[in-house]
Simulated assay, not measured.
Amino acid sequence: MKTIWLLTFCALAASVCAIPESERENGENGWYIPRPDGSFFWMDKDDAELRLQQLEMQETRALTTTPVKFYLFTKSNPTKGTKITATSKSITKSNFNANNPTRVIIHGWTQSSSSGMNKNIRDAWLSNGDYNVIVVDWARARSIEYASSVVAVPTVGTKVANMINYLVSDHGLRLDTLYVIGHSLGAHVAGYTGKNTNGQVHTIIGLDPALPLFSYNKPNKRLNSEDAFYVESIQTNGGMLGFLKPIGKGAFYPNGGKTQPGCVMDVTGACSHGRSVTYYAEAVSQNNFGTMKCGDYEAAVNKECGSTYSSVRMGADSNAYMVSGDFYVPVNSKAPYGNIN
């Protein structure tokens, strides 16, 4: 009981009990947890995991609802989404077409369905042809406390999977033409979506998967390379807001994966974190990000992968059938960010 009390006290007063700053390793012995204003506070690993356990217990006891909404965009309604539900009436009245591939987009913390990332990725795919683009809105992403949003991730992923399962069973959606695309916390939602579908999702794209409160050595509690036939991670703020160690079967490291050119005075990491979305949207529409194959992720981070371009392009639609390993990606400081025509 004394130990539990002490851990609880430390979790509430992290600055008192925390590991000295010189000994902190973000993602290893604790995490820098983001606040809505862009600042961070440190929590030791044991304290943070206790806090998550407390929140999970509150969720269970309170039977907290976790609302998730879905908006469908197609060539017929490219800018005004149709809200859809898992009912025959809703889907048959919409422009959903099972003959077309489907792309599901999931936003991250503090964002919503109206956030710019959804528009950019939606427009990129619709510029390529006929797709069902489903934008997910999960309200718990807007919780003031980041940890509260983290705790909601498994439930949200299950609800997205339930919608996909319904579209497969009742309306002919094909999993082998389905991509689930998530940014930051949304990348882990995408992972839980893949874990809960009745069959294997073809591709998951993790755009700088969130690091705070997720452990690399607990792959079943985050996005991992087994959550779909192919998982690609585009890692742009590694070691801060995103993972530095490889997450996807194909892991891509623009500018080495930590910081991005053109993100001046990026103290919070938000600019570099968001570049994963910008790069991916450009990659979908222009297929212009050349890559160098690396021996391991550390070589990618240190930009020690030679100067010869591989045949692989970051974000390419064909990657599921040919890509495995870690890749360094040269990028420009302004659009177009890719440097291959």
Rank of each mutant, 00 (worst) to 15 (best):
V135Q: 05
V135Y: 05
V135G: 02
V135N: 04
V136F: 02
D137P: 04
D137E: 14
A139W: 06
R140Y: 08
A141W: 00
R142E: 15
A147M: 13
S148A: 13
S148I: 01
V150K: 01
V150L: 03
V151L: 06
V151Q: 11
A152L: 07
A152I: 00
A152E: 03
A152Y: 04
A152S: 15
T155A: 15
T158L: 14
A161N: 03
N162D: 15
N165V: 08
L167C: 10
V168M: 13
V168K: 13
S169H: 12
S169I: 07
H171S: 13
L173P: 00
L175D: 09
T177V: 08
V180H: 05
I181E: 03
G182A: 11
H183C: 07
H183I: 08
G186K: 01
H188A: 11
A190K: 04
A190V: 12
Y192R: 03
T193M: 09
G194E: 02
K195G: 02
N196H: 15
N196I: 05
T197N: 09
G199I: 11
Q200T: 15
I204G: 03
I205Q: 07
G206Q: 06
G206Y: 07
L207F: 08
L207Y: 02
P209N: 11
L211D: 02
P212E: 12
P212F: 09
P212Y: 08
F214Y: 15
S215T: 12
Y216G: 02
N217W: 06
K221R: 12
N224C: 13
S225A: 14
E226F: 07
E226G: 06
D227G: 07
D227K: 06
D227Y: 05
D227M: 07
Y230D: 02
Y230I: 01
Y230E: 01
T236P: 03
N237F: 00
G238V: 01
G239Q: 06
G239Y: 04
G242A: 12
G242F: 00
G242R: 01
K245P: 01
P246Q: 11
P246N: 12
P246V: 09
I247E: 00
G248S: 10
K249Q: 14
G250D: 05
G250M: 08
A251N: 09
P254A: 13
G256M: 11
G257S: 10
K258E: 14
T259F: 06
T259L: 14
Q260T: 05
P261I: 12
G262K: 10
G262M: 08
V264M: 10
V264S: 13
